[in-house]
Design a binder for these strands. Structure first.
Lengths: 113, 113
DNA sequence: GTCAAATACATTAGATTCTTATGTAACTTT
DNA sequence: AAAGTTACATAAGAATCTAATGTATTTGAC
């Protein structure tokens, strides 16, 4: 079973940044496969979501790219820039903090009324 | 400091359902204030986001409404329907599960390459 | 050796879901 | 009496995703 899609919203950029922080350089397809594998098929990043995200990270200067040829096929590697590394830390800790807040909210049992 | 807004995406419906499950009946404005107070101002639900959500939950049969007059002012209370209660459990456990997955993803340190 | 599946990039139309702005109206506090 | 709070609501626009589609190469199975 995979999650109802709306949950991924807002977290995709953070996931991508974090993977790049841990793996130095990755290419798009690799990212989708890694996430799928790490989450036991629970999170499937579609290409329609990933590529615009990567391009936007590049446009914002958070990642840099280098192309490599595997036979005749292009492979585009993405790496974090220095600002990207800072951004990653921010995004990851913000998400961690948000999840703590959500966990608290979801456990509320007491009525204040 | 409050979260960069995109994080809330996809979680609002679950938050609302959970609050209704814990409080039997609530009205819109009350929900915004409760969330704000419970999260120490970190999560601010805007009315433009809340009311459409409530109306959609009502359209889907997950909540029922009753209006009350406080003086001349209308107050619209929302309560969970039986299907709404089931739905709440589903959504809450799905979100909890998703957060576990995310936590795991964000802690990845090892390189498999 | 050929055909399907996998690898690898990408874009686009459409859906969803939020923000920001706006509107109305009553009640409360200064 | 004015400003702030309570309480409902809608609408335009932004952001971000899905699903569909496209191109092309490479690998694996039969």
């Amino acid at each position: 079973m995979n999650y109802s899609t709306e949950l991924l919203k807002g977290t995709l950029k953070t996931i991508v940044l974090k993977l790049l922080a841990d793996n130095k350089k990755m290419y798009g397809y690799e990212i989708t496969q890694r996430v799928k594998e790490l989450t036991l098929n629970k999170i499937q990043i579609t290409e329609g979501a990933l590529y615009p995200t990567l391009h936007s990270l590049e446009a914002d200067g958070f990642v840099t790219t280098e192309t490599e040829f595997i036979g005749k096929r292009v492979r585009k590697y993405y790496s974090l820039s220095p600002t990207g590394k800072t951004k990653t830390k921010e995004k990851v800790s913000e998400l961690a903090n948000f999840m703590e807040t959500m966990k608290f909210l979801l456990d509320i049992k007491t009525k204040t009324t």
